[in-house]
Simulated assay, not measured.
Amino acid sequence: MSQRTTLIAAAGIVAATALVLHLMGRVPICECGEIRLWYGDAGGPGNSQHLSDWYTFSHVIHGFIFYGALWFLRGRLSLGTRLLLAIGIESAWEIVENTDFIIDRYREQTVSLDYHGDSILNSVSDILFMVAGFFLARRLPVAATVAIAVALEIWVGFMIRDNLTLNVLMLLWPLEAVREWQAGG
């Protein structure tokens, strides 16, 4: 598959994801009317509404994970095909993450009581940050990629008492002790 074909297919997947999110009733941008490069208040109303936030680092790590998981298919699938698979998986997650079921689950099982889902801009940005992580993992040595992922998890966990690991844990197997710690207790 040529780079141009891969780019067109990737853009098509992202555009289709944005359309599905629109049809689901997601807001295009933050209802505040602003588009910020960074929104740093993990519990604030603009979280998951702008181009990047504390959860952006999780999407970079998604890219690391997808590159690593799909690396084993390198003899059978081109880099472009593996990238498209990663974009498809991330796009599917962005759609699922913004369903009422998952939004309600976040509210019930985590400290994200005011979570209302992502804006379309944030979801598209999350996909693009996953792509950045995918290509970083392609360029960096495995040990560096793992070290960056671990460092990001520790740093984000320290800064906001949440990260990819805790997010998955609390969605799948909520622990009251973790919820209390995340709430600052």
Rank of each mutant, 00 (worst) to 15 (best):
W181R: 11
A137L: 03
I87R: 02
R26W: 11
A144K: 10
R161C: 03
L83Y: 01
L128M: 02
R74A: 13
I35E: 10
A18V: 06
I148C: 03
Q109I: 04
L84P: 11
L164R: 04
C30V: 08
L23M: 12
V20A: 06
M24E: 07
I89T: 10
D53C: 00
G157I: 10
I65R: 06
I35L: 14
G43V: 05
G88A: 00
G12K: 02
A149S: 06
G117E: 03
H22W: 15
N47V: 01
R4E: 12
V142H: 13
V124H: 09
Q182I: 02
S123T: 01
G63M: 04
H50D: 03
A10V: 04
A86K: 00
R179I: 07
R26H: 05
T99A: 05
A132K: 09
G157F: 02
T165S: 08
N163V: 04
A144H: 12
L7S: 15
S91G: 00
V96S: 12
R76L: 14
V111S: 01
G68P: 03
I120T: 08
I29R: 06
S112V: 11
Q109T: 14
T99V: 00
I65K: 04
R161A: 04
H62M: 04
A15K: 08
S58I: 09
Y106D: 02
G185Q: 14
V14P: 11
M130Y: 01
C30K: 01
E97W: 01
A132S: 13
E97A: 05
V146K: 11
L136F: 11
M159S: 08
E94M: 09
G43C: 00
A144M: 14
R4D: 15
G33K: 15
R105P: 07
V178D: 01
L136R: 07
Y106V: 10
W71G: 11
I154F: 14
R26Q: 04
C32R: 15
H62V: 05
M24V: 01
L121S: 02
S125T: 02
L70M: 08
Q49F: 13
L79Y: 07
M170A: 00
S2L: 05
A143C: 07
G185V: 14
L83P: 08
L70N: 05
S112I: 07
G185W: 15
A92N: 09
I61N: 04
E176R: 14
L83V: 07
R138A: 13
D126S: 04
Y67C: 06
L51N: 10
L21G: 00
S52A: 10
W181T: 06
R138W: 08
S52C: 09
L175K: 12
M159Q: 14
E94C: 05
S78I: 09
G12N: 05
P45R: 11
G88V: 03
S123M: 06
E31C: 07
D114W: 13
R179D: 09
L113K: 15
R138P: 07
V27E: 09
T6V: 14
V142F: 15
S125K: 00
F66A: 08
D114F: 14
G63T: 03
G157N: 02
V131I: 06
R76C: 11
F135Q: 00
L85S: 03
V111Y: 11
Y39T: 04
D114H: 14
L7G: 13
L85Q: 07
G80R: 00
G133H: 06
V96A: 12
H62Q: 03
A177D: 14
